[in-house]
Design a protein around this nucleic acid. Structure first.
Length: 313
DNA sequence: CGCATATCCTGACCGC
DNA sequence: TGCGGTCAGGATATGC
């Protein structure tokens, strides 16, 4: 459920509180949180201890922290983090009570300017994850342009483990024309395409429903019939709703979705469609409907978002 | 290629 | 009080 805005909130927190600090120790409390990391916990520890955390980066829902101080002059690897459904990254003092679902603890050296200026003690970065859909791993950084062929924008390096993930709506690489071509190049349903991280990343159930509502498009619209104007409107809606959510500190339905200081965002108060079954559409007052789709709930306004011709569920 | 399905998990919640 | 069933769902593997 953490989607792009929630992950960006976490990224900014890590940048403020942990970037520039050195890992002095690492504890893996539950190896299941080292997802798809065959090298194992001891290798994970060796890769991290003694390295310095650089400024964290994000693509879609993937967050990674390039590591300096290893055998490579240029950071060759990164600590990659995915929050999954219930993952949290918390900055805390060593004597703070252990969370019930604490999975990984990184001990950090000398504080940043911010931590010292604010008098806060946060000498640990903790990864907490109730449902273990998220995880951490060490991944080599590879040039993005090789994977996506994006040569008209500045190339960036991404973790190999996330190299198949498409640029997200807030990246310069995701232009309206690119988005349009992605949609027209597929023969599937519109929401299915939005949730496919290999087409456009960072969009989950909440922001898919919100952007479709803002764009007055039904989730079963055929992608190959989308017009340039509709694709452009949908991309703008994604950018707007994610920007609004980010400004509110993210969306939170319960205490699971928090920033690095444990605080929740309040964008859930601004949702127009998602989770609003039975409540009136803010535009036309028709009750919002909920339907089962792809094994999850889809919320939409049956008046503003009528079922299209030749819908494809 | 597209898509359905199962899998990984825990906890809240509901009906009985 | 407790017990079973359902729901929440991101990414990935597999099979058709």
């Amino acid at each position: 459920m953490p989607e792009l805005p929630e992950v960006e909130v976490v990224r900014r927190g890590v940048e403020s509180w942990a970037a520039g600090r050195t890992v002095t120790g690492a504890e893996i409390h539950d190896a299941r949180s080292l997802r798809r990391y065959a090298e194992g916990p001891e290798h994970f520890r060796r890769e991290l201890i003694g390295r310095t955390l650089l400024a964290p980066e994000r693509r879609g829902k993937f967050l990674w922290i390039p590591l300096a101080g290893g055998p490579d002059e240029v950071p060759g690897r990164a600590l990659m983090i995915h929050l999954g459904m219930s993952g949290q990254v918390l900055m805390e003092a060593a004597d703070a009570p252990l969370e019930k679902h604490l999975k990984v603890t990184l001990h950090l050296g000398a504080g940043t300017q911010r931590t010292e200026a604010e008098g806060a003690v946060a000498d640990q970065l903790r990864f907490v994850d109730q449902r273990i859909f998220g995880g951490m791993q060490i991944s080599p950084l590879v040039p993005d342009s090789v994977v996506h062929g994006v040569d008209d924008v500045e190339s960036r390096r991404v973790p190999a483990a996330a190299a198949h993930i498409a640029p997200d709506p807030l990246e310069a690489a995701m232009t309206a024309e690119r988005f349009f071509r992605i949609l027209r190049g597929r023969r599937t349903g519109l929401k299915r395409a939005l949730l496919d991280q290999a087409m456009v990343s960072g969009v989950g159930n909440i922001y898919a429903d919100e952007a479709l509502w803002r764009s007055r498009l039904h989730y079963a619209r055929r992608t190959e019939t989308m017009t340039r104007a509709q694709a452009s409107l949908l991309l703008t809606s994604l950018q707007d709703v994610m920007g609004d959510a980010l400004a509110a500190g993210g969306t939170s339905f319960d205490a699971l979705y928090v920033n690095v200081n444990g605080a929740s965002g309040y964008f859930d108060r601004s949702l127009s469609a998602y989770g609003q079954e039975g409540r009136r559409c803010p535009r036309c007052m028709t009750p919002i409907r909920r339907e089962k789709f792809m094994g999850r709930s889809s919320y939409f306004c049956p008046t503003c978002q009528p079922v299209p011709q030749n819908a494809r569920w």
